[in-house]
Amino acid sequence: MSADLALRLDLADLYAAYGACLDGGRLDDWPSFFTEDCRYRLVPRENHDRGLPLSTMDLRSRGALLDRVYGVKSTLFHAPYYQRHIIGPARVTGRDGDAIHSEANYLVIRTKRDAPSEVFNTGRYIDRVVRTAEGLRFTEKICVFDSELIPNSIIYPI
């Protein structure tokens, strides 16, 4: 099997596992998809396109991701909801050193307890992925979302 094909399969597994983790509500496992010095950003498309630095979430280490998980679980009052991630095929867009640049479209459907399911957030992941002893991990994940008008609040990671 060619190295390229193997990489594509590994990326497909990575995105599938990532979505399954969030959809399953396994928040505690979410930081383990990232390297120690990672960066996670959730950014409205208008800010991204105009080069404006403001993010909806901007976490700059795995520690900051753990802090987000703690905040969601222990301090941030919110109505509970399910997430369902539909993630499109990953596209390798480049490499630098050992890192792979990869992009994928995503659609997140939110289902609140007493309401029908609704399109919640949609956009694309712009990622930087590295191989580690544990497999592929994100060193950077930027979720650039088209759905700029957020239906009230975003609590869980995308």
Partner: peptide
């Protein structure tokens, strides 16, 4: 300023819950 912005806005640690309580 950008790191502290994590506290505010639609996902903010001390703002997302304001939107929620207003809804309820």
């Amino acid at each position: 300023r950008m790191r502290q912005a994590n506290l505010f806005g639609p996902a903010g640690f001390v703002s997302a819950d304001d939107g929620e309580v207003i809804e309820f």
